[in-house]
Computed example of a mutant assay.
Amino acid sequence: MTDTDWSSGSWTNEPERVERDGDVLLVTAREGSDAWRVTSYGFVHDDEHALLAPMAPGTAVEVAFVLDFSAQFDQAGVFLRVDAETWMKAGIEHSDGADSLGAVVTRGMSDWSLSPVSDWTGRTVTVRASRSGDAVTIRARVDDGDWRLVRVAPLDPAATVTAGPFCCAPTRAGLTVRFVSWRSVPADASLHPEH
């Protein structure tokens, strides 16, 4: 496990404000920021705040943050980018009054999946994106709990990928996300745990 220094990444779009509090990074999102392509809504948003660094095959990136959302579509987690039309985001999104664990996978057009995690509010959430072979496997957990499988998505093994923490605030000003860690770890050994 290797901690990634906050200064080693580059922002896709500059946040409203970025502050250091010891090892913690406080990121305040710009109102209206989001990442989405076309599906169902008909618009393209590519003004997310993602702090990205190169992600090699056979590695995983883990991002941890404190879950404290209140407005529609507040979101944070991990972002993987190949290009403007090929990317993934996974983490927590506040949708229709509930915090939910989910992912958006975009290959020209975005898709979206969510599952409520109301008991995670106020706790530390860690999201892991693991790159192995022709896939990215997304897992998440709260505090030191068990990892939960979120998504398995295809990814070209030869693709040049950048990855790291992200946040967005599509509907309001003033969302500040407290990111507590950004790490590089070995890719998951298998899709399912040994029994």
Rank of each mutant, 00 (worst) to 15 (best):
T2Y: 13
T2D: 10
D3A: 15
D3S: 15
W6G: 00
W6C: 04
W6D: 00
W6E: 03
S7A: 14
S7E: 13
W11F: 06
T12A: 06
N13M: 08
N13W: 04
E14T: 08
P15I: 01
P15T: 00
P15G: 02
E16M: 12
V18W: 14
E19H: 07
D21T: 10
V27R: 04
A29V: 09
R30P: 02
R30W: 01
E31H: 07
G32I: 07
V38A: 14
T39L: 13
S40E: 14
Y41H: 12
G42L: 12
H45T: 09
D46P: 13
H49A: 10
A50D: 01
L51W: 02
P54G: 12
A56S: 14
P57H: 05
A60M: 04
V61R: 05
V61A: 10
V63C: 04
A64C: 13
L67R: 03
F69K: 01
S70R: 14
A76V: 09
F79P: 02
R81N: 06
V82I: 07
T86C: 14
W87Y: 05
W87I: 05
M88D: 09
K89H: 09
G91C: 04
G91W: 00
G97N: 04
A98C: 10
A103V: 11
A103F: 13
V104W: 10
V104N: 01
V105I: 13
G108I: 14
D111L: 08
D111E: 12
W112T: 09
W112P: 08
P116D: 12
P116W: 01
V117R: 15
V117Y: 05
D119T: 12
G122L: 02
G122M: 00
T124F: 09
T124D: 08
V125D: 06
T126Y: 01
R128G: 02
R131P: 07
R131E: 03
A135V: 13
R139A: 08
A140E: 02
V142P: 08
D144G: 10
D144S: 11
D144L: 03
G145S: 05
D146T: 11
R148C: 11
R148L: 11
V150P: 00
P154M: 07
P154V: 11
P154Y: 08
P154H: 05
A163K: 02
A163T: 04
G164L: 03
F166P: 01
F166L: 00
C167F: 08
C167R: 05
C168M: 04
G174I: 04
G174M: 06
L175I: 03
F179G: 07
V180H: 08
S181M: 11
D188Q: 10
D188A: 11
S190F: 05
H192I: 15
E194Y: 14
H195Y: 15
